[in-house]
């Protein structure tokens, strides 16, 4: 495994039951880069993320985290890997019965031997980093969607992870809030040197933060492009990638009469 490689994916096939979602995925995530997984709705981006964070096991292929096979790891090794990653979910996934402080404190209490006072200090620091200083006593239901995402990020960075995963960080956010979250992602990478993997279909966000991007093609059920967003836009390897990056449906000029007929379903 290359020294600069943080996560190595080889010949990964993802399935739900007997249905193949994506096949033959092979790529590396380099240490310290912001790597974006992009693709249309239903292309399997979030499923790929679930594989990368160990929530789903590969049907075929391997995922190596710092050279360690995540899928084949025993419980102790998995715990060791999980200690080194942080995840923010699409809707925050904050525990509703806990305050923001308790949400951020939980990973610290679970994985470290810090005392209550030290935990409280780290919690305050993490909440301050995401702009939620003083929000410690509030419950997730008492804050807005954007704040929930930031609180989720504070929880994800509680243990100073080496790799941070984001599932659709800008979904449901207004452009300004989404842009601020992108700035935060860049700042965290810049200061901590964290490797960041983002699943997204937000073009503005992809252009702003991605060092490299992977495109999952829903029709071909595999990856069809890997490179920097600028390169992919200049030299798109396929028509689908071109359409995705230029937000074009490809048939805007098609007269209505030439559109395919509406589907009919048996009653």
């Amino acid at each position: 495994m290359d020294e600069a490689t943080c996560i190595e994916i080889r010949d990964l096939t993802m399935m739900y039951g007997k249905r193949v979602i994506m096949r033959d995925l092979s790529f590396d995530v380099r240490r310290g880069e912001i790597f974006v997984v992009m693709g249309g709705s239903g292309s399997g981006k979030s499923t790929l993320l679930k594989h990368l964070i160990g929530l789903k096991r590969p049907a075929e292929g391997t995922i190596l985290f710092e050279g360690e096979d995540f899928g084949a790891a025993d419980d102790e090794a998995r715990r060791g890997i999980l200690r080194r990653i942080g995840v923010t979910y699409q809707n925050g996934a904050l525990w509703s019965g806990l305050t923001l402080a308790e949400n951020v404190a939980l990973p610290l209490e679970e994985f470290t031997t810090l005392g209550a006072e030290a935990v409280a200090e780290v919690v305050s620091l993490k909440l301050a980093l995401v702009g939620l200083r003083g929000f410690e006593p509030l419950y997730p239901a008492e804050i807005s969607g954007g704040m929930r995402k930031r609180a989720s990020l504070a929880r994800a960075i509680a243990l100073d992870p080496e790799v941070l995963f984001f599932d659709e960080p800008s979904s449901g956010l207004d452009p300004i809030t989404a842009s601020r979250l992108d700035d935060l992602i860049l700042r965290i990478r810049g200061s901590f040197g964290t490797t960041i993997v983002v699943v997204s279909h937000d073009l503005a966000s992809i252009s702003k933060i991605a060092d490299r991007a992977l495109f999952l093609d829903i029709e071909q059920k595999t990856m069809t492009a890997l490179g920097s967003p600028a390169d992919l836009r200049t030299n798109p390897p396929s028509e689908e990638v071109h359409r995705f990056l230029t937000r074009s449906s490809g048939d805007r000029d098609t007269p209505a009469s030439e559109h395919p007929p509406a589907r009919t379903y048996p009653t």
């Binding site: 301050a128 980093l129 702009g131 200083r133 509030l138 935060l184 810049g190 200061s191």
Partner: peptide, 15 residues
């Protein structure tokens, strides 16, 4: 830069 970030938003008094 991180220290600056922690002070970017004033603390709310939400006791």
């Amino acid at each position: 830069s991180l220290l600056e970030l922690t002070g970017a938003v004033p603390e709310r008094d939400l006791e």
